[in-house]
Amino acid sequence: MSASGGTKAILAALTANAGIAVAKFAGFLITGSSSMLAESVHSVADTSNQGLLLLGQRQARRRATREHPFGFGRERYFWSFVVALMLFTLGSVFALYEGIHKIEHPEPLTSPLVAVGILVVAIGLETYSFVTAIGESRKIKGDATWWQFIRQSRTPELPVVLLEDTGALLGLVFALIGVGLSEVTGEPVWDGIGTVMIGVLLGIIAIILIVEMKSLLIGEGATDRELDSICAALTGGRVDRVIHIRTQYLGPDELLVAAKLALAPRLELSEVAGEIDAAEARVRERVPSARLIYLEPDLDRQLV
């Protein structure tokens, strides 16, 4: 997948979160709601996160150098990992701290209807961002479930934005419940409980993202479907079978393929070169992300 779909989802999320952060912080200043403060910090973190994802895409486009001969595609994985850490530290930890403090020292809310109005508007803006991310993800998700897409996607930005938007929407609902119950019952402790729920939610999402981005940073190979397609493409002509194969994603759009191929015996050198070139061409046709292909010919010793 090109970065265009991910960029569109990131820009939609950045625009929505920037506006929401300003509105939420204004709501906190008016109402004193800890849920609003936690959501304000959450939106500021999300806005910063989208900026980091855009930075990662920009850095990944740099040309390969002698020091980094395979390019900078993994910059996108690195900055997505940083985003997950920020979501945990700025979002989850702060919300948990503020929520526990508000439970231990509850304070009545002022102008709770203002908070409710801001939260409702924020839900609308987050829904716009979420729908955009869903639309862009559908283009590459295929028949996988959403959980499989998040776990298996080699494109980091869309799963990050999807989970962030999911967390933002649920967090807004928790904040709305906390503020609403505080007003209905006259017990401001509910505002603190809503804040703790936001912190727990963000922590879960952050841990999922940290685990997935760490796996991509270490290096993940082709999916089972891609690997089957590559092996089928390599076999053909005078290539009898694939002796062994290794793959690794150097970036979301760049797959490294290294394989040892068993060729028919008694081929001339020019014929061997032709078979290797043809095998590379077949792989590139079936799996466009296979940009770097290194093939080692060998005799099919089963036929010698």
Score class of each variant (00 low, 15 high):
E126V: 03
A175Q: 04
D277Q: 12
D277V: 08
I293N: 02
G124C: 11
G194N: 08
I205S: 07
D46H: 01
L255A: 02
G6M: 13
S2H: 10
E98P: 13
G27I: 01
E296Q: 11
S43A: 06
D165W: 00
A168S: 06
P112H: 03
G117A: 04
I276M: 12
H101E: 15
G186T: 04
G180M: 07
E107F: 06
E271K: 08
E280I: 06
L250Y: 03
S270R: 15
A3F: 13
S40C: 01
L11K: 14
E107W: 05
I198N: 02
S4D: 15
G237A: 07
L53T: 04
I243C: 13
L54Q: 08
S182K: 02
P112R: 00
S229A: 15
E67W: 04
R291F: 08
K141E: 11
A233G: 12
V211N: 14
G73E: 00
E226L: 05
S80W: 01
A133P: 11
M213F: 08
S229L: 15
M1T: 14
L55V: 11
P108D: 08
M36V: 01
S137N: 09
I198C: 01
L292F: 13
A60Y: 00
A144M: 14
D228S: 14
V116S: 09
G167R: 00
A144D: 15
H101Y: 07
A84Y: 02
E136P: 09
V116W: 03
F88A: 11
V173W: 00
G91I: 00
V114T: 08
G178H: 02
A115E: 02
V179D: 05
S137R: 08
A38Y: 00
I123G: 10
K24C: 03
S80V: 05
